[in-house]
Design a protein around this nucleic acid. Sequence first.
DNA 1: AGGCGCTTGTGAACCCGTGCACAAATCGCG
DNA 2: CGCGATTTGTGCACGGGTTCACAAGCGCCT
Lengths: 225, 225
Amino acid sequence: MARLPEYLRALHNLAEAGDDTVSSEGLAAAAGVNSAKLRKDLSHLGSYGTRGVGYDVALLIDQIEFTLGLTQRRAVALVGVGNLGHALAGYAGFASRGFRIAALFDADQARVGEPINGLNVRHISDLAVVAAAESIAIGVIATPAAAAQDVADALVAAGVTSILNFAPCVLSVPEGVDVRKVDLAVELQILSFHEHRKSSLTALPGGLSSPNGLAATGTEEAVGS
Amino acid sequence: MARLPEYLRALHNLAEAGDDTVSSEGLAAAAGVNSAKLRKDLSHLGSYGTRGVGYDVALLIDQIEFTLGLTQRRAVALVGVGNLGHALAGYAGFASRGFRIAALFDADQARVGEPINGLNVRHISDLAVVAAAESIAIGVIATPAAAAQDVADALVAAGVTSILNFAPCVLSVPEGVDVRKVDLAVELQILSFHEHRKSSLTALPGGLSSPNGLAATGTEEAVGS
DNA sequence: AGGCGCTTGTGAACCCGTGCACAAATCGCG
DNA sequence: CGCGATTTGTGCACGGGTTCACAAGCGCCT
Ligand SMILES: NC(=O)c1ccc[n+]([C@@H]2O[C@H](COP(=O)([O-])OP(=O)(O)OC[C@H]3O[C@@H](n4cnc5c(N)ncnc54)[C@H](O)[C@@H]3O)[C@@H](O)[C@H]2O)c1
Ligand SMILES: NC(=O)c1ccc[n+]([C@@H]2O[C@H](COP(=O)([O-])OP(=O)(O)OC[C@H]3O[C@@H](n4cnc5c(N)ncnc54)[C@H](O)[C@@H]3O)[C@@H](O)[C@H]2O)c1
């Protein structure tokens, strides 16, 4: 499930706080989900808590990390060392969550050779050999949208089977390759939609009729203090 | 629906390409979704295409932009001008998608006053007055996780009712405030899970038994060339 | 040792999103 | 003017995710 990383983060927080066991209720609150959902998710991966007491934090962390394939530190390639690429390359949060940025690539010769965070930017033409040498299976695209498809093709040709795409465009990849897209403008537009809905609602204080029957789903967070 | 922004982006691309009308099939392909789903989405917002011909691109853009509340250019506040915050502040994609970064905030006095992209960083204590003056309803949090809840509280107190959170933590906000979270490490971990699943599958070539019954949903992209 | 309270695991109902398939409608052309 | 090609809009069934609710199991305290 896509919620396992959230559980994992919450568990690490609990482990740092010194907790040894957690109840499903407590972990659900820390991860911001329903407790029944969490129990069902955890049961699906065969992890057994002990009734009456809860889950063993350290054991559960191991279970989830194994399920997510984080027992090995995975190497990722970052393509496009521009505005966003710099921030990503300098981000310490990846290393602490099971990943190692193994190589940086760019098409701009002026950027090639630039050292970032102890790593030198390499030219995109080196992608294939470096990916093979470092056994890179995950690629991150932080190039303009116009170049994203070409980069994706190059990544796939280099043996990458999972791609995280920051460019606002749809990628077409062969079967067996997974793509996840992160589009920040889309996130803001969804928030804007909520703003629009809210202001329409306050304009009609009785709430007689909502402006439409739409409901945005996804990464939504249920409110509540 | 959360897919409207995707449709909008695809429509803008089509408009730039000079197309006047689109079939649901064509737009669905450009947005990477099923055509029936797209038609149902569009029918939900009352937009009427003409049968036998398709949808009017310009009209549909207006319809979707109205539904998303993008008729007015919305002002957003960005809090935390660090590694990631710099990239966001310098990103041109927000302006072209209906948003205006109206103010930058940070707690670090060394950063206050720094000009970024024609905007000066202000101290977080100015948030309330600036938000009121600029009528800011959307806030972006790009601070460390430890500070995120405090920043969220300050944003809410300043009248912000929608928050985009980049810090890896759950925020608790009062009812009526919407929060969307973007966690890049989570995205990578989901990809890692897919990698793990794929490698387990190839290890058992017959595919007799999948390692578990999990299926990650969400921003997934259906493969296919 | 036995009972009691707490927590997990899960059965089942429910709800919603998804996709198929088709009727209705519109345009272009003869 | 009428017909066929094309495309929208939608009824309906299916599947999966979500939630409630409760039985089963475990530890602790007496
Ligand atoms: N900066 C942000 O905060 C932000 C936010 C959301 C989305 N994005 C998206 O992320 C992408 C990158 O944004 P940015 O602001 O970093 O842009 P940028 O122009 O600063 O950086 C793009 C980099 O990609 C490199 N590049 C171009 N073509 C390439 C190719 N074929 N192969 C390899 N490298 C290539 C360029 O040399 C440049 O260094 C864009 O698609 C943008 O829409 C950025
Ligand atoms: N850099 C990335 O690529 C990246 C990727 C994913 C997630 N993130 C997350 O984004 C957040 C920011 O990352 P970063 O790399 O930019 O960190 P950073 O340390 O470079 O920047 C954080 C900024 O927030 C400011 N800040 C701290 N406390 C504040 C407060 N109370 N009010 C206002 N400002 C405050 C700091 O002064 C600093 O300028 C982190 O939570 C990180 O986990 C970053």
